[in-house]
Design a protein around this nucleic acid. Structure first.
Lengths: 319, 319
DNA sequence: GTGAAAGCGCTAACAT
DNA sequence: ATGTTAGCGCTTTCAC
């Protein structure tokens, strides 16, 4: 029994006799043999590993995307290395790790804009690349139409009859927040309204309850308090709802609130929001990555999801 | 310039002349050379990879633990493969992947009880192992004293003067839920009270908003409604709070609520709960794993954290 | 201080 | 259908 035959059995080569195959399998099971991943990887020049680079871990959006990725990956025989940045600047370091030669074969990059320097590094690493919540013509991009989502959110409030509609964003402002603000401004101007924007400076990561709480406090203390607020993310909206409650204001009677994301708890906070298909985005990103791995010359593709408005009690309108 | 010298430079061997080292480094940078991870791994019999096996991804507890792991790992040069089960039964499959020879050197197993079969498999895989939220004498175990936490929660309600204190758990009941129920029962009996336990059957994963919502509905509809409830997890408590609100009941005036975990949003839901040091547990688990990797004969150690009571408005007592 | 050479545990021609 | 052998890209003795 040569090592080559064993290798053939494990690689399902058709050129093995049925009885030898059975024998090898029996013995392998008996002694608990399984091929050595690294040796296999070196020999076939493929590691069966893909990596995901994520700006922050503790965020429901990323968790859901990650869950979609894992579920889609389970059907393949690729495993997933997760590189989470500890700080915003750390993204470069994590990317460098993910791009090390002989580490992984594919890269999923989340919410990380591709500048020229990064494009160069990605190209030279010769990995399959899929961008999620970011885009670049050279790579597969999977994103949500944040501008359209924000327009829908704002129109919903306008149509429901709210008069002074404010917007809470984050500072520093990442691309998705920028687009959501732009959508809000666009819809407001189109309706002849004056935008009213607030953000609280929360570093390093603005999408958090604290930032929503603080920004809402700022709005509450203003001379002309808004009667509705569109907030850049659900977690911030949760913080904002808390601020309203602390101030003794009722939702939606005194102030209506719309979030963005539709994270799990939002349903239980009765928060009107825009649903992003996070899980589906994760699944799709893996499917695209695997497709690129199987067919390296596959042209890049851009997939834009349009977020749906989910009406709940926080706007008092069940459209 | 031989390949051996280059290798020495990259491995910081002292036996290289300063000028050759400088030359190698310059050229390497110029042509963007970095050692091939798989080849390196095969040669030194070490992959610089550790893996984490997680029952479910979408859970704030795991996310925080994972964040602690990632932060602690960033200082080392190990990368993390994440194996998330798609279903409860899938744990075995993910474990098998993580244990493949030549894949990773260390294993972090979360909330996964070690039975004899698993102990055998882990031992034979010769990996460093750290258990989180589970324990076994053969392996490092990092956990929280769920019984004590539940006792504290229950006592807090008793001391605050609540009369009919119910408990909401989950079904199927994982070890942490079992311990929390036990702690509740113990504290109730010690105070001469009669336990009153409800769970809603939510498969595959009971720690969710829905299950808390449903269980609370059951309690509300009972002839003698409880005036306080200790709930096995914060996410369930969030669902329960929603059920109370829908029923027009005030918290804590009509029903007081205590959760378990202290996830981020709980602060904004004004939920009294028991704080688990999730992030710290993640950091510690990696530190232990790296210690075992550095010193294979290190004896297993058990680390038990005691959860702290965090008093908020949902129990109306700010101790 | 540097180079030559023997692995690491596989896969994939190429023989037979 | 099976065995032989040459790599895969490094690390690590062992010479020099």
């Amino acid at each position: 029994m040569s090592i080559a035959t064993v290798s053939r059995v494990f690689n399902n080569s058709p050129r093995v006799a049925d009885d030898t195959r059975a024998r090898v399998e029996r013995v392998a099971r008996a002694m608990g043999y399984r091929p050595h991943a690294m040796a296999q990887g070196l020999a076939r020049r493929s590691t069966n590993l893909v990596s995901a680079v994520i700006p922050v871990l503790t965020n429901y959006f990323y968790m859901e995307v990650l869950r979609g990725m894992q579920d889609a990956l389970a059907a393949s025989d690729y495993d997933l290395i997760v590189y989470a940045a500890t700080t915003p600047e750390d993204i470069e370091g994590q990317l460098a790790r993910a791009l090390q030669r002989g580490r992984s074969e594919g890269l999923l990059m989340l919410s990380t804009p591709v500048n020229d320097e990064r494009r160069r590094r990605l190209a030279q690493a010769r990995q399959a690349v899929v961008l999620v919540d970011a885009q670049h013509p050279d790579f597969d991009s999977i994103l949500v139409d944040n501008v359209e989502g924000a327009v829908r959110a704002t129109r919903h409030l306008i149509e429901a009859g709210y008069q002074r509609i404010a917007h809470i964003t984050v500072y520093p402002e990442p691309p998705p927040a920028r687009d959501r603000r732009a959508g809000y401004e666009h819809a407001m101007h189109a309706a002849g309204r004056t935008p009213m924007i607030v953000a609280s400076d929360k570093r390093p990561y603005g999408f958090c309850e604290e930032s929503g709480y603080e920004a809402m406090r700022t709005l509450i203390e203003q001379e002309t308090r808004p009667d509705a607020v569109f907030i850049a993310s659900d977690v911030q909206a949760l913080g904002a709802l808390c601020a309203l409650q602390d101030a003794g204001l009722r939702v939606p009677e005194d102030v209506a609130v719309v979030g963005f994301d539709d994270i799990k708890v939002s349903a239980y906070a009765r928060l009107t929001t825009l649903r992003q298909p996070m899980y589906e985005m994760g699944v799709l990103s893996i499917n695209r990555l695997l497709a690129h791995l199987a067919q390296p010359d596959l042209p890049p593709q851009r997939h834009l999801f349009v977020p749906d408005l989910v009406c709940r009690a926080s706007t008092g309108v069940f459209a």
